[in-house]
Simulated assay, not measured.
Amino acid sequence: MSKILPKLNSSLQDFIKEQQLFFVATADIDGRVNLSPKGLDSLRVLSPNRLLWLNLTGSGNETAAHLLGVNRMTLMFCSFAGNPLILRIYGTAQTIHAADPEWEELYAHFPDLAGARQIFDVQIESVQTSCGYAVPLYDFVEQRSRLLTSFEDKGPEGTKNYWAEKNTTSIDGKPTGILESTPQ
């Protein structure tokens, strides 16, 4: 049976820390809904009603484009080991870029990861838990390193060039704001 709560309690915060994978969903007022799997050491719970997600460079930049139009975000975690549980976090998010004054303070919560693109500062409005009985059991092997090594090899200038080529607009043609907010 699902439960809706106004914030993350300590056991849900512990559950999040144990997860190797989470999913993020956003949508603008029109166009496609984006749902992406996320991993690596890229999420921090700051309080029962606030979390940070360090968004690493990828082939698209849908979340940033969507948040310029509608700042709603849903994150979902599934237990793939141990007791079954699905956790959904509903909230609003603000995009923080390296040129923004908050960047240094917020980025300090994370390891220095190559390809760091934005931080999404999520204000949690509610959380929902549900049983997760149909989620299969999986054994975690390791995080993949290819994304990190790819952007380590590209370096800061190569990463900015990649953003210019692949990350300036969404698949629906909406701007992402990535180059307008990149330090020169």
Rank of each mutant, 00 (worst) to 15 (best):
Leu56Arg: 04
Thr26Asn: 01
Ile96Lys: 05
Ser47Met: 08
Glu62Trp: 01
Tyr162Phe: 12
Thr129Pro: 12
Arg50Asp: 14
Gly173Phe: 09
Ser181Arg: 09
Ala134Gln: 03
Phe15Thr: 05
Pro6Gly: 14
Lys160Cys: 12
Arg50Glu: 15
Ile86Trp: 03
Phe22Leu: 15
Ser79Phe: 11
Pro156Asp: 12
Ser36Met: 15
Gln19Asp: 09
Asp14Thr: 09
Thr176Met: 11
Gly82Ser: 00
Gln20Ser: 15
Gln143Leu: 11
Ser130Gly: 11
Asp121Pro: 08
Gln13Thr: 10
Thr26Gln: 06
Thr74Ala: 08
Leu21Trp: 10
Val45Phe: 01
Asn61Glu: 07
Ile119Phe: 00
Arg146Gly: 10
Thr74Ile: 07
Glu152Trp: 14
Ser59Asp: 15
Phe77Ala: 04
Arg88Ser: 14
Pro183Leu: 09
Ile86Thr: 07
Val33His: 00
Ser47Val: 10
Ile119Lys: 01
Lys174Pro: 05
Ile124Cys: 13
Gly60Ile: 06
Pro111Trp: 01
Arg32Glu: 03
Asn71Gln: 07
Ala64Gly: 07
Glu165Asn: 04
Gly155Asn: 07
Ser79Cys: 06
Glu157Met: 05
Thr26Ala: 09
Leu51Thr: 06
Leu8Met: 14
Leu137His: 11
Tyr107Ser: 10
Ala81Cys: 15
Gly158Gln: 06
Phe151Gly: 01
Leu67Val: 03
Thr95Met: 08
Gly158Asp: 12
Gln19Tyr: 04
Val141His: 10
Asp139Pro: 04
Thr74His: 04
Thr159Arg: 02
Phe110Ile: 13
Gly39Ile: 03
Gly39Tyr: 06
Gln184Pro: 04
Leu67Trp: 03
Val24Glu: 11
Leu35Arg: 02
Pro6His: 07
Glu142Arg: 05
Gly91Leu: 07
Pro136Phe: 06
Gln94His: 04
Thr182Phe: 05
Lys154His: 06
His66Cys: 06
Ser181Gly: 04
Leu5Cys: 11
Asp100Pro: 02
Glu165Trp: 06
Leu35Val: 06
Ser79Ala: 14
Ile171Gln: 03
Leu21Ser: 11
Ala93Gln: 02
Leu46His: 02
Gly58Met: 07
Ser145Asp: 15
Ala98Val: 05
Ile178Ala: 05
Gln13Ser: 14
Trp53Leu: 14
